[in-house]
Design a protein around this nucleic acid. Sequence first.
RNA 1: GUGGGUAUAGUUCAAUGGUAGAACACUUGGUUGUGGUCCAAGACACGAGGGUUCGAUUCCCUCUACUCACCCCA
Length: 445
Amino acid sequence: MHNRIKEKREQALNDKIKVKYPRIRGMKDILFDEYRYFDLVVSKACDIAKAYGFKRIEMPVLERTELYERTTGKLSDIVAKEMYSFVDRGGEKVALRPEATPSLVRAYIEHGMFNQSQPIKTFWSGPLFRYDRPQAGRYRQHNQFNLDIFGEASPMADVLLILIAHTYFKELQLNVEVQINSIGCVGCRKEYLEKLKDYYKPRLLKAKLCTECKKRIVKNPLRVLDCKEPCCVESLREAPHIVDSLDDDCRAHFVKVLEYLDELNIPYNLNPFLVRGLDYYTKTVFEIWPISEETSDVKLVALGGGGRYDDLIEYMGGRATPACGFGIGIERVILKIKENNIILKSESQNAVFLAQIGEQARRKAFVLFEDLRKGGFNASQSFTRDALRAQLEDANRVDAKYTLILGQKEVVDNTILIRDMDSGVQEIVDFKKVIPELTKRLANK
RNA sequence: GUGGGUAUAGUUCAAUGGUAGAACACUUGGUUGUGGUCCAAGACACGAGGGUUCGAUUCCCUCUACUCACCCCA
């Protein structure tokens, strides 16, 4: 009776809490089953990265606001309207990182990594924050996995990144397409932008653009290429391609990248209108687009993207260092995996469940459980429960192959029961021989 | 920032101008030491505020949240 009242009170309290302190918009809890996907997606990426000689790095979530204003660009949407920035108690202007590259570059410079043997290959995984309106595959806090290579000018670095990305999605059984383009160096881009502006000089053509792009063509012409408005897409049909404006060096670099991709049999789509939103990219830019299973259409939400940023490190006050990198959106990958009904490996690896009845048995069970764990068994238990029935239910829940039952009687006799959970057959075994017996049984499987 | 849709139990969904049901999940018991099946019992919900009304979970308004799309991005 007492318990019931207590429970009710707790429930009422919980309900109140639920409405009183709701989660912040666009933020997600990742629980249990969901976390299995998270784990798979991240650990697979880490494994591949390690295999290719990348080393793990983590940076603080908080950086000076200025860092992003200078690199990502004050005018970019990310900085201008999506950044969580505030003044801290010491009067410092700080921001929750909206992307990882600036922090990486900051760390590279700050720790004098240019003095180590180049290239420096890093991988990183963690949360990013953008104050955006949430929707499918977009959150205010989302996780990315990034690979970056510092100090390598060779097109091989670009290729390596794309190769890893491609391998990664293939191993996850996701159908993707690599979209690739080169936006050249500052010089090429300057030349191209003139050509593009010239192309849009005729009034008639300019009139076709959407309102946004009419502004863009003056302020940030490259972004016009990226617009998805049908009228803009249409207007671009005859537009000059940036690859035709590349200088010898940039062209040679890009050709080399494509040659290697061909060699490696990595399917790509040469997308002359692919430009990336961030200011610091040079030469190769690429995105990974999912291909929908049923329609085999390419969906426009990218699972990942990246490119080269050869000027960024010098621009930030470091020694001139070529670099490139790319990021994968963890939540988006998970979404795709679920969409495609890709089945996770079952977690029924809790081969042995240890049940106990009575105080003495429980004490003995604690010790035995440690031995099982140290012996490499996937052991589970619910020592907080008393009833054997409840414990067997738990054993069933975790899909145990065997349940060990240790009761008062067994303690006295120095034995233990081994119950086969499929057949329900159980056997009395000498307590000392449990571990060898289990080893034998599990080896036979 | 703009536009659409939605809001009922832990989850997925019903019904209703007279305060609500199911399925699954959960707890307990049937079995004081035996799970998966079965049976019984139990706990748990109308997002918030306002209006219309004798009476609103239902109709209207506002807010909030969720969701989808645009912008942008991963």
